[in-house]
């Protein structure tokens, strides 16, 4: 299942990309799994076709998805192609963590609550690693 929130300040396109990357990272989408057609996902979520198409394209550019004739869009890898030097990657990821934790603090969460949330996500993502 993929969930987005229209009330969130995060753009829908970014939520889609993050949601699909999260499902791949957590192993809920494995190599060879087929994604629904753009039209179907857009209709189910009640969003624009182009938004879904752009998200699929971004993940295709990142090396996670591929469009194949007759099979539609398929997950082809569970590790992204490096988009730049390792140090740059780490900086980008840390900025993402900082933004998420900043969001938690602004939402009024206590430090312990934020820590337990982060630990839960780490446990979920690395349990099979």
């Amino acid at each position: 299942m993929l969930t987005i929130s229209l009330a969130s300040p995060v753009p829908i396109h970014d939520q889609l990309v993050a949601g699909l990357r999260g499902l791949i990272a957590a192993g809920q989408l494995a190599e060879g799994d087929e994604l629904p057609p753009v039209r179907q996902l857009a209709a189910d979520l009640g969003i624009n076709l182009n938004t879904v198409a752009r998200a699929y394209r971004e993940l295709t550019d990142a090396g996670l998805l591929a469009s194949t004739r007759g099979r539609g869009t398929v997950v082809i890898a569970t590790v992204e192609r490096a988009s730049g030097p390792k140090a740059e990657e780490r900086k980008r990821i840390e900025a993402g963590i900082a933004a998420a934790l900043g969001d938690a603090k602004l939402a009024g969460l206590a430090r312990e609550a934020a820590e337990s949330m982060a630990a839960r996500q780490i446990e979920r993502l690395w349990k099979h690693a």
Binding site: M1, L2, T3, I4, S5, L6, A7, S8, L23, L29, E34, L35, P36, P37, Q40, L41, A42, A43, D44, L45, G46, I47, G72
Partner: peptide
């Protein structure tokens, strides 16, 4: 008709390709 939601802004979709 359409993908409106009863739950405020939260929308959820299945990732199963129904054409199959």
């Amino acid at each position: 008709v359409g993908g409106g939601s009863a739950s405020g802004g939260v929308r959820t979709a299945s990732l199963v390709n129904r054409e199959r």
